[in-house]
Design a protein around this nucleic acid. Structure first.
Lengths: 97, 97
DNA sequence: TAAAGTAGTTTATTTTATAAACCAAATATT
DNA sequence: AATATTTGGTTTATAAAATAAACTACTTTA
């Protein structure tokens, strides 16, 4: 009845990051930080976890002398997100199932 | 853009409990335990938290010599659940918003 | 009467999330 | 030119949550 909710995705901040990346394919660290209202430290940790899970790719370069971190979602990440959404629906019905 | 997700509800087990109670109004501890596949200890703790938040009411009686704990959702709980669902939708759109 | 089952609670451990502190380099200020 | 501040992060420490294990209290069955 209640399917497992992928613990990697069942986190407000990581879910927000994935939600952003699903839409725009690629985003910079600071952009994600602003959109999610996260602190840099927290975001850094959660991005690392999404990367470790293989859900996103992280690219670190320099741009105009400053470090620039960009993230993009992977195929595995998209699949995991879609699976999570489906599992979650089973929890959200307000009607009598 | 990303609304706060009520931390009381953003937990797999507590959400499952609330989801059950939204549908059936009242349920016994053991029934919830079976439906959610939770351990008794974990369920006991999470039910206590939902009660502390005022989201459910817990009634303890005896039936056929055994303790019987039944739970029901409160008005506050229903409202919180509905608010949570709406906030969550903002995270789940796969299309380009 | 001893073993096993019911229906939980409490405590301890592990895992997560968050915040605070820190780092390295760049730019702006005095 | 030194020093203060800002950018773009990472690392470490602390707080909170989830989970598992152990325990309580009683009942039923062998």
């Amino acid at each position: 009845m209640f399917k497992e909710l992928d613990p990697i995705l069942h986190s407000q901040l990581r879910l927000a990051v994935m939600s952003l990346l699903i839409g725009i394919k690629e985003a910079e660290f600071t952009f994600i930080k602003e959109k999610t209202n996260a602190t840099a430290g927290n975001l850094s940790v959660q991005i690392q976890k999404l990367k470790d899970a293989g859900y996103i790719e992280v690219n670190k370069q320099f741009k105009d002398n400053y470090p620039l971190t960009t993230c993009s979602i992977t195929k595995k990440g998209i699949e995991a997100f879609e699976k999570y959404v489906k599992a979650l629906q089973g929890y959200l019905h307000t009607d009598t199932n």
